[in-house]
Every structure is written in structure tokens, then in C-alpha cells.
Amino acid sequence: MKALKSNCDANSGKLMPLINLSNCGGKEDCIPACPYDVLEMRTITPEDRLKLNIKGKIKTFFKPKKAYITDPNLCHACGLCVQVCPEKAIKLIRIQN
């Protein structure tokens, strides 16, 4: 297993994870990787299901749980969730103030 490199920012609220639900396979690797409990797994909402591309619809048919953000202000931009996601479904984006 590859060693994870954390670049945690002492201040939270500058960056947040953005999850591509069409790419998310619900493998849950991101949940325990996050030291700040920013992410959770839950069943995809009907609204989000409508936005999926064909690949996402197929993945969701077999595994309807997806990663969701609990509170973006808790994110310390360590990038651990990005590193562990086998689907490359997570990236960090700057929060617009």
C-alpha cells in the first residue's frame, strides 16, 4: 500500500472536496481516511441520480451508496480522501466566499 502524504492546513474552510457522483463507486475508502469526518456514505438522492452519466447510472444500479460531504467547513485540505479514492472521484476545490 502506498504511504499517504497529508498536507493538512491548520485552518479549515478554504478548500472542500468535490465528489463526482458518476465516478464514485461507493467503495468507502475516503470515509476512514478523512481525519475530520467531512465525508459520509449514504444512498444517492433522487435529484443526484438524475444528474448521473451512463457510467454513473450503471455503477449506482449495483451500489446505490455514494460519498457525500457532511460539512465543507470542516475540511483542512489534507487531500487524503483524494489520494485513497480508487475511482478518482474526489478533488479539492477552493470555497467561494
Score class of each variant (00 low, 15 high):
residue 9 D to P: 00
residue 84 V to P: 02
residue 60 T to N: 09
residue 55 K to W: 02
residue 46 P to C: 15
residue 4 L to V: 06
residue 62 F to C: 09
residue 33 A to V: 01
residue 42 R to V: 12
residue 53 N to Y: 13
residue 81 C to T: 12
residue 19 I to D: 11
residue 78 C to S: 08
residue 97 N to I: 05
residue 11 N to H: 05
residue 5 K to Q: 06
residue 21 L to W: 10
residue 24 C to A: 01
residue 67 A to Y: 08
residue 94 R to A: 06
residue 16 M to H: 13
residue 25 G to R: 06
residue 79 G to N: 03
residue 26 G to V: 09
residue 97 N to G: 02
residue 16 M to P: 02
residue 89 A to P: 03
residue 71 D to W: 12
residue 56 G to T: 03
residue 40 E to Y: 14
residue 28 E to W: 12
residue 30 C to M: 08
residue 1 M to G: 14
residue 66 K to I: 07
residue 14 K to M: 09
residue 49 R to I: 06
residue 48 D to V: 13
residue 35 P to A: 07
residue 5 K to D: 05
residue 52 L to C: 01
residue 81 C to E: 13
residue 59 K to P: 00
residue 16 M to L: 00
residue 60 T to P: 01
residue 2 K to C: 04
residue 74 L to Y: 07
residue 65 K to L: 02
residue 63 K to T: 10
residue 80 L to N: 11
residue 66 K to E: 05
residue 92 L to I: 13
residue 23 N to R: 14
residue 92 L to A: 03
residue 32 P to I: 10
residue 29 D to P: 07
residue 21 L to Q: 15
residue 81 C to P: 04
residue 71 D to M: 10
residue 75 C to Q: 08
residue 39 L to Q: 07
residue 10 A to R: 07
residue 62 F to Y: 12
residue 85 C to I: 04
residue 55 K to Y: 05
residue 46 P to V: 09
residue 24 C to K: 01
residue 84 V to K: 03
residue 44 I to K: 01
residue 60 T to L: 00
residue 46 P to Q: 15
residue 44 I to N: 04
residue 33 A to G: 14
residue 3 A to L: 04
residue 89 A to Y: 05
residue 48 D to F: 10
residue 10 A to N: 02
residue 3 A to M: 10
residue 77 A to Q: 02
residue 36 Y to A: 13
residue 74 L to M: 12
residue 48 D to T: 05
residue 61 F to H: 04
residue 86 P to H: 03
residue 55 K to G: 11
residue 6 S to G: 04
